[in-house]
């Protein structure tokens, strides 16, 4: 049953990821990405990461994708030529990279599995997923958490500065 659910989610994820790259219209690409985000969230639920599944839907589907659609709407795009001229090289490079990854996984699986099994001391999850993550976030990862807030602040200021008029216009 779990395997069936995994293959359902995995196939939809792969197909929609392909559609994101292959579709001509940016709006359709964004909608394909939306479907992919939902299925990644489903995959997270099967992996017992319920908090991240909800965050994935809220942040990615709710905020990031809406931002993309707003920009597509603002820019009033013309139809343009589909693919870059280096299509063949790009496809070849992607296939090589993927083959390399599969080879590494197949070759290293036995040792990887052994090391993982040896080092794994499974923590009993008596509390909920959200509670455990929150405690970890505010104790062990407190400093990275603060740095993340700083990154968001910098991004916010940067976005405002960049979209101000007169930054990139040619001076004449």
């Amino acid at each position: 049953m779990e395997t069936f659910v995994f293959f359902y989610f995995a196939s939809i994820i792969v197909v929609t990821a392909g559609l994101v790259v292959a579709l001509k219209n940016p709006v359709y690409s964004a909608l394909a990405l939306l479907v992919m985000f939902f299925h990644v969230a489903g995959l997270f639920v099967t992996l017992h990461a319920e908090f991240l599944a909800i965050i994935q839907i809220l942040v990615y589907a709710g905020a990031i994708l809406v931002l993309y659609l707003f920009v597509v709407m603002l820019l009033n795009l013309k139809r343009e030529e589909h693919f870059h001229s280096q299509l063949i090289v790009g496809l070849f490079l992607g296939c090589v990279l993927f083959a390399e990854a599969v080879l590494l996984v197949l070759k290293g699986e036995t040792t990887l599995g052994n090391n993982l099994a040896a080092s794994a001391a499974p923590i009993e999850l008596t509390r909920g997923n959200t509670e455990s993550i929150g405690e970890l976030l505010y104790s062990t990862y407190l400093f990275p958490f603060e740095v993340a807030s700083l990154i968001l602040l910098v991004a916010m200021v940067g976005a405002v500065i960049l979209t101000k008029k007169g930054i990139l216009e040619v001076k004449s």
């Binding site: 995995a10 994820i13 792969v14 990821a17 392909g18 994101v20 790259v21 940016p26 690409s29 964004a30 990405l33 992919m36 990615y60 990031i64 993309y68 920009v71 597509v72 820019l75 795009l77 343009e80 030529e81 589909h82 693919f83 870059h84 280096q86 299509l87 090289v89 790009g90 496809l91 490079l93 992607g94 296939c95 990279l97 993927f98 990854a101 599969v102 996984v105």
Partner: peptide, 28 residues
């Protein structure tokens, strides 16, 4: 699975000309 999705994203960055789609591929 994540290798497949990563490769698709990489190919998308390499072969598309629309900057918006390139950013979507980075999300992938």
């Amino acid at each position: 699975l994540s290798g497949i999705v990563f490769s698709i994203g990489l190919v998308g960055v390499l072969i598309r000309r629309n900057i918006i789609i390139i950013l979507l591929s980075v999300e992938l």
